[in-house]
Simulated assay, not measured.
Amino acid sequence: MKYFIMDESLNEKIIGSDFPQVHKFIKGYDEDASNALFSLYKYKTTFPDYTPNLDGVKLAGYAKLTDFISNGFSNRLRIMSPRAKAVLGQYNLCSHRFYPLGLYKRKIRHDYFLFHIVSDYSDFVDYERTSFQEYDLISGYKSESFFVHSKKEFWEKRDAIEAEKGISWGIWGDKIVMSKGFDHELDFFVISILDGNTYVSERLKNAIETAGLTGWEFTPATNLIVED
């Protein structure tokens, strides 16, 4: 299956001139409540046993309503319209939950959803065939490609680089090869730890574009190899 990297749109004609489109709450929303949006941050590998109170978040002043709304909270938490939820719900997604969310534009409430994902497919990476690069988040520097032989060696090298050069340094996947044990029918997933991209299958990309959903853009995932 062919995959694409999903990115949030920066096109001002589509999203307006504020990015991210959401980064604040409406007046009176208790950000510190035990069931508020921020309570979801600790759920990286599981989901809460409660429905979070997400009523509500505020669209930035110069942002436009789109089907997919960029936010400044977390890339594991995506905001989307009912139309977008209906399309994604027809496909094979990584482990996820949808929660009702109130999105306010100039005090008018719009019914949206928060898409909370738990996605880590790093155990399905073929480490011996995947190439890596050292990188520095501050300068943007990337080294020549190199190889490791296991996930254990990946972590050891990552920890050693951070200890030597600082917390802004790490290891990123360059050309990533997924093993035969990977679910080839997945339409939406994040590999995690060695790669920050969100991957969407060609069939889901086509469905999103055919439905005219706005807010996401796609580029071919030339860095990802998923073997049959």
Rank of each mutant, 00 (worst) to 15 (best):
S150C: 08
K151Y: 14
K152N: 11
K152Y: 09
F154V: 05
W155I: 14
E156P: 01
R158T: 09
R158F: 13
D159R: 15
I161W: 00
I161D: 00
A163M: 08
E164K: 11
E164F: 06
K165H: 12
K165S: 10
S168M: 11
W169G: 04
I171L: 15
I171Y: 05
G173D: 03
G173K: 01
K175Q: 13
K175G: 09
I176G: 03
F182L: 06
D183S: 09
D183Y: 11
H184K: 15
H184I: 12
L186N: 00
L186V: 04
D187W: 04
F189C: 02
F189K: 00
V190K: 15
V190T: 15
I191E: 03
I191M: 06
L194Y: 06
L194H: 07
D195L: 06
D195E: 13
G196P: 10
G196L: 14
T198N: 09
V200A: 01
V200Q: 01
V200H: 03
S201Q: 05
S201G: 05
E202V: 05
R203K: 15
L204Q: 00
L204K: 04
N206S: 12
N206Y: 02
A207Y: 01
I208P: 01
E209C: 11
E209S: 11
T210G: 10
A211T: 05
A211H: 07
